[in-house]
Design a protein around this nucleic acid. Sequence first.
DNA 1: GTCTATATAGGGATAGAC
DNA 2: GTCTATCCCTATATAGAC
Lengths: 181, 181
Amino acid sequence: MSKEQVIPKLIPVFRHYGYEGATVSRLSDATGLKKASLYHHFQGGKEQMAAAVLEYVANWLDENVFTPLQSDKPPSERIRAMSQGLDKFYDSGQDPCLLSVMSVGEADNLFHQQLEQSLNHWLALLTQVIEETGVEPELARQRAEDALMMIQGALVLVRVNNDTQPFKRAIAKLPQILLDD
Amino acid sequence: MSKEQVIPKLIPVFRHYGYEGATVSRLSDATGLKKASLYHHFQGGKEQMAAAVLEYVANWLDENVFTPLQSDKPPSERIRAMSQGLDKFYDSGQDPCLLSVMSVGEADNLFHQQLEQSLNHWLALLTQVIEETGVEPELARQRAEDALMMIQGALVLVRVNNDTQPFKRAIAKLPQILLDD
DNA sequence: GTCTATATAGGGATAGAC
DNA sequence: GTCTATCCCTATATAGAC
């Protein structure tokens, strides 16, 4: 089994349990590989596994969320494409946000830069799209932040309340937040 | 030292590190009590410490956020009082949300009910205040959810970005979200 | 590339002196 | 009520056979 095949199986473990909760035993179970085999692929141990997962996810987001946001279609269409990517990424709100669980405790010390970079990349792209509709830079930035907060907040609510409705509503509200306000 | 004096010192550890990251060693350092002394106060061990912390926090919220929301003052005034309580609770966005970090991994299995109850209590009270302004129940509920999402999402953004601005803006926007829309 | 077996550290928890 | 000392278990990580 290649590294590329292993990483996707690691993702849900970190997502669901967080960095400290994602024990090598659980990672072993999730991949079907024994511990020693995991260490063969990731000599840097658990830390490297998490780093690889974050990189993989950043690339996935790039392809499915950020790139569609930069197409030459009209803003509303690009927002729609982004929303579709997000809905897939979070499985309609059922999957927690990796970036958010990795910003807790020890993991934050290890990966803060990566998380910050991904988030700010997203914010910057989103701001740019809104600016193109003739909105002032500062207001555009605020709307981008509002959209992100809504999504992240919805994910928290969904987790605690076991009801994906808030996430679906947040996704549906994105065009309004970003373009109509 | 009494239990009541110990609990407040435990809170920041769970808040910052999450349940699995909050090791008994760290809890010992934070309180200045050795492990055995902690176990004297909390015979149920770490799980009981976390439960006590959650209960303490729920009571704090009751007093400083929920009760002000139920006063006989006008809705706008009650929202303002709630905002003030929230700002204090999250130290202007610098402290993570205990409810959100405790909804990760193993902790979620242990404390899901408590978390859900606190959150729904808050949502219900908030919904009621909005209904009093003549808003339809369903819309009122949605606005309450929106407000909560905004706060929770802002806290995520603040953590990742090391900038409390989004939280302050979220707090400032509460009256608009809840009353003006 | 995957495994069994094992080493080492730290986590949660307890016994018993003071 | 707090401590030192200790127990057991799990966590991360490695050695070396296949």
